[in-house]
Design a protein around this nucleic acid. Structure first.
Length: 417
RNA sequence: CGGGGUGUAGCAUAAUGGUAGUGUACACGGUUUGGGACCGUGCGGCCGGAGUUCGAUUCUCCGCUCCCCGACCA
């Protein structure tokens, strides 16, 4: 993509109404635009990052054997009344609206009830189980206080999955498999080493749920962490947790600031019973389905990744989620000979499937370097008069600052897989 | 929702009871060209309402906004 044709623009100064590093950098670098507190537009660069994160999650969800669908954001009052969760006193993040035709609708803060209810059309026998579906969807939550940039918004993108099982054993097998799938996601997203399966509050159905907490200074949670043993406990359940059973002592646990990037829940049979989702088992008995719910905060992940890897010059993306792999910075382009030479490496790379953002703007070197650092693509290739004379490109790794001087052949060998 | 703060141009900031200055961005001209260059010219602004006042961007009140702390957080 040629930058002169791309919808992007950087800002030198961070907006005064953002404190959070993730929002400051994402706005300055042109990934997002703040619409209001807790709601951000995704600009083209930001959208590519989100799509990359989604694709990784999608692939792992496919491995897990779940099917993607897309639920509506309008939800029925009657359905949520059935589970006693329509009342604002029970769920305090509802956005609700009046229908012109009469009555009320809810705007989706979760899709547990609608999807469970919908599954009545698909589940009637133990032969239909187990099954699981998932979606990427905007969640709307009327937070009293949005905060931390894109880490806690009123509208955000979440991957939510729902599992339906005939027995507890079936449910447990899926639940454990989802942990593996999630760990794989976070590993591929570049935060695997710092993300822990964490014991957390279980709500009404089970004693504990499991959260995926990523070590992050600007996170909202405090996790008690034993890195050596890989044991993590959310502070909200530290008192309840049986440390002996977990094989860890209190002294080994270090209070650590973390951000919740995923959360998995066991609903037991209660949710299905409330909604009315039953099936016939082998004994011809009509019993409720075992359900589980599995979330990953897609937009929050973008924020966490920015927070974790950014340096004082700007964003540093892991290769797996970077909007482009290479930032080709062309200098001295007013000289036709050099422009042709730089165009050459640009088309050679793109033809071979390397994603390149080509800074072909008429701007001074300093501005291009500063923008390139800010935008944070994994590799920068500088092509200039100086380089053409020596027949080499300067290749800089954003994360380490390592500089290499490579010929076109070497560049292609290095970047084309 | 409780507490604290905030609101001036696309962005960042300054001053002021007598209608507002600077940087940046943007446009034009010129000089520049490996780490956000320089000179000149130009465009562009006081969150909303009420009150006080001869006069309010400035003071008062109300509202809204955004940020922070807390509470909340399937």
């Amino acid at each position: 993509m040629r930058q002169t044709k791309f919808f992007t623009k950087t800002q030198k100064e961070a907006p005064a109404d953002e404190q959070a590093k993730n929002a400051q950098l994402l706005i300055r670098a042109g990934y997002i635009h703040k619409e209001m507190a807790g709601a951000y537009q995704l600009l083209p660069l930001g959208l590519i990052v989100i799509q990359k994160i989604k694709q990784i999650v999608r692939e792992e969800m496919t491995v897990l054997g779940t099917n993607e669908l897309l639920a509506t954001n309008l939800q029925r009052k009657e359905l949520w009344e059935r589970t006693a969760r329509w009342d604002d006193k029970v769920v305090d993040v509802w956005f609700k609206s009046e229908l012109k035709a009469g009555g009320e609708v809810g705007l989706a803060w979760s899709h547990e009830e609608p999807i469970a209810d919908m599954m009545k059309n698909h589940i009637s026998s133990y032969k239909d189980l187990p099954t699981a579906v998932y979606q990427f969807q905007n969640k709307l939550r009327n937070e009293l206080r949005a905060k931390s940039g894109i880490m806690r918004g009123r509208e955000f993108i979440m991957k939510d999955a729902y599992s339906f099982s005939a027995t507890e054993e079936q449910h447990e097998a899926f639940y454990e498999a989802s942990k593996v799938a999630y760990s794989k996601c976070f590993e591929r997203l570049g935060i695997g080493d710092d993300t822990y399966v964490t014991f957390a509050a279980g709500g009404a159905f089970t004693e504990f749920s499991h959260e995926f907490q990523t070590v992050c200074e600007s996170g909202e949670d405090v996790t008690y962490l034993c890195k050596e043993k890989g044991i993590a406990i959310n502070e909200e359940v530290l008192k309840k947790a049986d440390l002996e059973e977990l094989g860890v002592t209190r002294d080994e646990l270090v209070a650590t600031k973390t951000a919740e990037v995923g959360n998995i829940f066991n609903f037991g049979r209660q949710k299905a019973e409330e909604v009315g989702l039953f099936f016939k088992d082998k004994e011809c008995e009509r019993v409720p389905v075992w359900m589980g719910s599995y979330g990953i905060g897609i937009t929050r992940l973008m924020g966490v990744i920015v927070e974790k890897f950014a340096d004082d010059k700007g964003i540093v993306w892991p290769e797996s989620v970077a909007p482009y792999k290479v930032h080709l910075v062309g200098l001295n382009l007013e000289d036709d000979e050099i422009r042709d030479w730089v165009d050459g490496i640009y088309s050679a790379l793109t033809k071979r499937g390397v994603s390149v953002l080509f800074d072909d703007r008429d701007a001074r070197p300093g501005e291009k370097f500063a923008d390139s650092d800010l935008i944070g693509l994994p590799y920068r290739i500088v092509a200039s008069r100086k380089g053409k004379e020596s027949g080499a490109f300067e290749v800089v790794t954003r994360a380490t600052g390592e500089v290499r001087s490579l010929t076109e052949e070497e560049v292609l060998a290095d970047f084309v897989k």
